[in-house]
Every structure is written in structure tokens, then in C-alpha cells.
Design a binder for these strands. Structure first.
Lengths: 257, 257
DNA sequence: CTTGACCCTGACGCTACGTCAGGCAGGCAC
DNA sequence: GTGCCTGCCTGACGTAGCGTCAGGGTCAAG
């Protein structure tokens, strides 16, 4: 007759594990002695070892009972299923390893390499961190909603950076990022911005993929600008007076005036 | 301003997950509107996406917060550790796959292939299932305690099966497995058994590895016999009268008589 | 008689949420 | 105004497999 501690030691498990198996009905409760201690026979050791053998092979405890008494056909069917689960779990971790390696390699989270490269180019051009973070956040949102469009979009953006006119406008905008809404220089900035948009808008209208962005996403990107840049709302008002509404997606104002 | 449902949709998570991140302090609680609803800005979407990016790479939520604000050196150290954990988990599942494949191939749980082969041989020789299960249980116990001795022990046992005298004794024993303790044929069986032991004991004493079995294990194996065979205790008494004490490990009775 | 090792039950902790349950809020149709 | 649908709120339990107290009783040895 064995105490629970000796039973557990023979099977190489803890006493707590044996209690747990009793609670789950995996191992039947044995007789108790006069003081309430559980008393086991050798067959319990065998049964416990058989349980652990299955558990050590990755069988969930909830299925151990049925497998212990399964006939070969059921057994091998169950084994197939468990092996499939194990393979899936392995693939999952392998995917995790790949992704975390990418995170360790790139310098930014949640962005594809093209976007990281684009942000790096902005940094090379001397744009300040504040604005780069703004860009980063916007692109994180875009990448999350339409990842498949990212290569196209980034190629477009990088091409724009080759144009001195674009660089010039970026420079002016970044200088204004910290301005208050009532800054007297804002109307002049709006003038130059509108002129730039007027001059280049012809290029965009021709099936630009950015125009396929979802309405919700456009709103969201606008709100990044509105939330993080103090003068944003004022600038949009000024732009609208000059014939352009919106920010992420610009639309010509029609109607009176 | 976004409701929690739209926030969750943008980041590709459930509302419940956002609640959970709030509860864990991973994502700060935003302002509430007049009716108590949470109201989020676009920055919250970005933050949530960054959280999911790490979580999707296998980073435990408890470490996400520190990693989001980690400098590159800390970040890569943490990534190394997480990758080690992932590798360990993959190795663990691969071990599970190997073991469960072995279980599917062999016909018995918790036994090495030599033991399975030995039991198969017993079955070939026509021994009944009852006795084979007894043997199986005993060997499961031995394999669990001293797995490294199993090849040697099994080789010894298989060699014994080549001896007609051993087979004969096995046959007689198995025929007696179901006898009651008061069966009149028992003394005669004990006579033949003692004679067999007397005749072969000389071979064993010479450094048989089975004699290295732990005292506790010997007791345990004896109790398998005692628990499962009705006439076991009586047979041991009869054997002791004939000069041999024990079962798993036999010892010559010394002293008076 | 004390001490240390062992046994008992009950309960909380861990991971990352899913899934009710019960109730309020907002907007639309009638 | 009223009913309905959807969305939001909080709180609580369930998952897997035990580990780890907490607060007690028991057993064998010194």
C-alpha cells in the first residue's frame, strides 16, 4: 500500500498532479485509511504512468481517458488529429520566429520594409522626428487596412521625393507643424499649398491607386493630422477657401463662390 | 472620434480584446462621452496595431509594454530571449510528435520496443491475455524506474524463453492464475516451482543485473503479483516452506528448519 | 513530547481572451 | 411615442495543467 507521495514519486509526477487527475476523473480515487489518507496499489502506479506517457506525448488530459481504452483504429485516428494539432502549433511558432526576426531587423514596428525605407529617406532629407512620426503613424494605419497596396503607394511616394517642388512643400509644411492656429503666416502657407495642388492635381486624377482608399480610412488619416497638428483645422479651412477640401484625399470645391 | 467597436475593427481585434488590454494597462483608458462610452482618437488605433504586431510575433502581453518603448539594444536582447523561448517550444512539440508517432507504431503504451517485442513473443507462445497484462504492468513499472536497464533485462528474459523448462513453468503458472487460495493443486505446483528454482538458481547469483533492482521496486513488483493474482499470497507461503522467500527477487530461507 | 515530513481540503494564480448575463444608450421605423 | 436593433457598459465564469500558499491533522523518530 502506497501513500500519494510514493505513488507520485514512482510515476515521476508531483502530488499536486495526482490530486488534479483525481479531480478530473482521470485516475480513480482509491480507498482511504483510517485517517483519511489515500492508499494506492501497484496498479495505480501503472495507470498513472500510462497517463503520463500520453500526456508527455502532447495528448491533452481531456482526451487521455478515451485514448487509454481506445481500440487501434480509434487510437490511430486520434493520434493523427493530435499530430496535426502539434504540426499547426509548430508552424505557428515558426511564423512567430519569422515575424520577430523581421522586427529585430527593421527599425519600426508594424510597417513593411518599403515603408521603413521611405521613412529612412525622409530622415536622410533632414525632416524632423516629429513629422516623421506623423508620417509613420499614418502609414501604419494604411498598412493595417490595405497592406497589398503598400508597395504601389510607397513607390509613388518615393517618386514624389525626387521632385524639388514636392520637397519644397514638405519643407514648408514641416516648418509649420508647431504653429498655433492663429499664426499670421498660415494664409500665405495656404496660398502656396493651393498653388502647388493646382499645379500638380492634373497628374493625380488619372487612376491614382491612392484614390481607392476607403472613405473610413481617409477620415482616419485626416484625424491623425487633425489630432496631432495644432493648426491643422485652420489650415483645412483656409485651403477650402482656396478651392480644395480634405487632406488625405483632396477634392475640388464646387458650387457658389 | 471612434467608438470601441470601430477602433477594434481598424486594428483587426475584438472589442473584448481591447477591454482586456485596458484592464492590463497595455492600452490607456480614453475619455468617456456623456453616456459613458469610450471615445478614441486615431493615435489609439496606431498604438493598438503596434501592440498586436508584437503579440502576433509571439511576444507575451506582459512584455509588450516594455518592448514598445525599448531602445534598440534592450529590444534586441528581449527579442533574443523570446526567440529562444519559441525555439524551445518548437523543440518540445517536435519531441511530442516523435513520441506520439512511437505510440502509434507500437502496440503498447509506456514500454520500449524491446519490451513490446517480448510481450509479442509471449503472445506467440500462446500465453493468455490475462497473464500478458500482468507481465506488461510489471515491465511498465520497471521501465519507468530503470529505463536504462531495460535492454539488458529484456535480452535476459527472451533468452529464458528459449528454454523448454522455463516455458513449462510458465505454462503451469499461467494455468494457476485464476485459482483460489485454497485450491488443492497449489502444494504440488509449489513443489515443482521450488524444484525448478533449486535447479536454476546457480545461474542467477552470478552478477545478474536484475539483482540491482531497488528494494522499493522489488516490493512494488511483488505487490502487482499479490494484488492481481488471488492465490499469490498462499503460493508465496508454500514456497517459503520449501526454502524460497520473495517473488521478484528470490532469497533462500536460512535459519531453523 | 516535540519535531520534521507527510497528508488533507480549499482557493487563488497564470495566458489571452471567449462567452454569457443583465442593463443602458442611440438611432431608425412605425 | 413606442418598439426594435445594434452597440456599449460592467462583472463574472471558463479554458489547461498544474504551482503555490493557507490552515489544518497525522505519523514515525528522537
Amino acid at each position: 500500500m502506497l501513500t500519494i507521495g510514493r505513488l507520485a514519486a514512482y510515476a515521476g509526477v508531483t502530488v499536486r498532479a495526482v490530486h488534479f487527475y483525481h479531480q478530473k476523473g482521470l485516475l480513480p480515487e482509491p480507498q482511504r485509511d483510517s485517517s483519511g489518507y489515500r492508499r494506492y496499489d501497484a496498479a495505480a502506479v501503472v495507470e498513472l504512468i500510462r497517463i503520463r506517457t500520453l500526456a508527455d506525448a502532447g495528448v491533452p488530459l481531456s482526451r487521455v481517458r478515451e485514448l487509454l481504452s481506445a481500440r487501434p483504429a480509434e487510437f490511430s485516428a486520434a493520434v493523427d488529429e493530435i499530430d496535426r494539432r502539434l504540426r499547426a502549433e509548430i508552424r505557428e511558432r515558426q511564423g512567430h520566429r519569422r515575424r520577430i526576426a523581421q522586427l529585430a531587423a527593421g527599425d519600426s514596428l508594424a510597417l513593411p520594409p518599403e515603408a521603413v525605407a521611405y521613412l529612412g529617406r525622409l530622415r536622410e532629407l533632414g525632416f524632423p522626428d516629429r513629422m516623421i512620426e506623423l508620417e509613420r503613424d499614418a502609414w501604419i494605419l494604411v498598412a493595417a487596412q490595405v497592406p497589398e497596396q503598400m508597395p504601389t503607394l510607397m513607390a509613388l511616394k518615393r517618386a514624389q521625393l525626387d521632385s524639388p517642388a514636392v520637397i519644397d512643400i514638405y519643407d514648408q509644411l514641416l516648418a509649420a507643424v508647431e504653429w498655433e492656429p492663429d499664426d499670421p503666416r498660415l494664409p500665405a502657407l495656404a496660398d502656396r499649398l493651393a498653388a502647388f495642388i493646382d499645379a500638380t492635381s492634373a497628374d493625380w486624377d488619372t487612376a491614382d491607386p491612392e484614390f481607392e482608399l476607403d472613405d473610413d480610412l481617409v477620415d482616419l488619416l485626416d484625424s491623425v493630422f487633425l489630432d496631432l497638428v495644432p493648426m491643422a483645422r485652420r489650415l483645412l479651412v483656409l485651403l477650402e477657401e482656396r478651392g480644395w477640401r480634405g487632406w488625405t484625399r483632396l477634392e475640388r470645391v464646387t458650387g457658389p463662390r
